[in-house]
Design a binder for these strands. Structure first.
Lengths: 167, 167
DNA sequence: GACTCCGCGAAACAAACTTGCAAAAACACC
DNA sequence: GGTGTTTTTGCAAGTTTGTTTCGCGGAGTC
């Protein structure tokens, strides 16, 4: 469901050198990974087995981290997307690690980043209702005495949602 | 690559009623959509064709919006993830729509939300270098006279990244 | 109680993925 | 500039997976 980069401690991928073919293949797979390899092959001028070998290699190297279905949150009753900026009081290594663990374990926290700037953490949260969000804040933020302040932004429109990376 | 909810104007999905089987299937597909249907069937106590029919139905209904490969940004040279909060000057419908269009068209903008609160837009940006980000700000923010202020947060760690929704 | 409507499972079918092998291309080293 | 090595490709066969068809059985209706 989620991809935890912090947990999958792959080595820095010895040789993740990607040529033009690899990038074109990634570009297609990022849009639709159900595209048949034969079709991909035609698009990049390569045979299907060659495409298959490259995909396998990139998967083993960790270039492709996961293959997932994207589900409409509204369809499963989680219609509200919320952004939260969190400022902590004490930034000791242990406390930061503890916070990371806590956020990562929460299913309703879809994304979590540790950042520099006016905040320390940024979260993307998906909940079925504001009441649920209120309960979450009570548990995660008010119930954590290392949280100095948090700022909430409720999404009115999801203009663009994805994990695509320019190739 | 990205899923643009604003562009895919599906109707509110007549009957996206999901039962327990559907939710279990979605849960599996959100983790790994290459899981064979018969394996899914064993996990949820259903035959492979039944699983296949449900997946097809949910895809047609828009519950499953896309099937994508998740690529490690660092592997393709886009190692820097940045959060941006944007405050606009004038919030007329046209200008908001124009901003949405502009943000959605930018490949390096991975996610874009229109929000309430102390900011108007929240962006997730993926760039190869800070120089690239600087160029982007010059073009998108300084070059847009409707942007009142923007705040930048640079990600030091991606604790959790995904689009998974609790089922 | 007979009827229709849905959704399931078993089997047949079609398509895609995977593997072995020989040839061609790219590369390093003389 | 030639030669041996390594890498990568394409083809073809074999295997797995996805898809369709068909008959069956239960839920709801009249």
């Amino acid at each position: 469901m989620q991809v935890c980069f912090a947990e999958s401690l792959l080595p820095p991928s010895s040789t993740p050198r990607l040529d033009g073919f690899d990038r074109k293949i990634l570009d297609i797979l990022q849009r639709d990974n159900t595209t048949p390899q034969r079709t991909i092959g035609e698009a990049v001028n390569l045979s299907a087995p060659a495409v298959q070998r490259r995909i396998k290699r990139m998967t083993e190297e960790g270039v492709i981290r996961a293959n997932v279905a994207v589900v409409d949150p509204a369809a499963v009753g989680h219609a509200i997307t919320i952004f939260v900026e969190i400022e902590v009081i004490s930034e000791t290594a242990e406390q930061i690690e503890e916070a990371k663990r806590q956020f990562a374990a929460e299913p309703q926290i879809q994304q979590c980043y540790y950042v520099t700037g006016e905040a320390d953490f940024v979260l993307v949260i998906v909940v079925p209702s504001m009441a649920e969000y209120e309960a979450l804040t009570r548990r995660l933020f008010f119930g954590n005495n290392n949280v100095k302040r948090f700022r909430t932004f409720v999404a009115m429109d999801r203009i663009k949602v994805g994990l695509g990376v320019p190739t």
